[in-house]
Amino acid sequence: MSDVAVDCSGVWKFYGDFPALRDISLEVPPGRCLALIGRNGAGKTTLLRILAGFSKATRGRVSIFGNQPRETDARRRIGFLGHGISIYDELSALENLILFARMYGLAEPKKAALEWLELTGLTRVRDGLVREFSRGMRQRLAVARAFLHNPSVLLLDEPFTALDDRAIGVLQALLQAALREGRTIVMSTHQLREALELATDVALVERGGVAYQGPRTPEMLADPGWLYARYGES
């Protein structure tokens, strides 16, 4: 096992001849939270999808605790929260969570599912079909789905964008707890405030490359636009 949680070196991704990612190298040790900052279309989502194993790097190497993202060991460690909630509308909240618990091979799927319904405040509606849920409830269920298998690496694509206040609260509490427990977070965001409060490191992604990489500093918190102004292209 490697002591670097998320490691990518020299990663390129081409769509045809167009490089969506150019030579990206990042190392995230356990217990750190890296915020990927950048405009829409800069390549943050592409990078996260490669880290999560949805997509393969054209060149370069990606590893999650020493394993390639498509290996079963790595996939078990990853919790991914993307733009879609990855929850089935035709199934109930409980059925959805039990389904994912089974796919992740948890010893007691139902127990884990109930536990997470409790944590996200959905116990009351556990047998309701997701189709009938409000937006906020669906988002909390998605958070439960991503955390259900106790992942040690959390990959979050714009996690705060579409959330309502209660879901933001639930997610922030979970993420802070996760960091305290020594888990690793990589998240993409363009909403700087919420992300920067959590982040220990930042990387500015521009046109598929990393324009700046380093620890989060107090100036960034004081003026979220500072990073763009200092290192970004005009």
């Binding site: 769509y15 045809g16 001849d17 167009f18 279309g41 046109r207």
Partner: peptide, 13 residues
């Protein structure tokens, strides 16, 4: 054609 496609995407980017 591939080369042209690549250039076009580059131009869009």
């Amino acid at each position: 054609r591939r080369e042209i496609d690549g250039m076009r995407q580059m131009a869009h980017a």
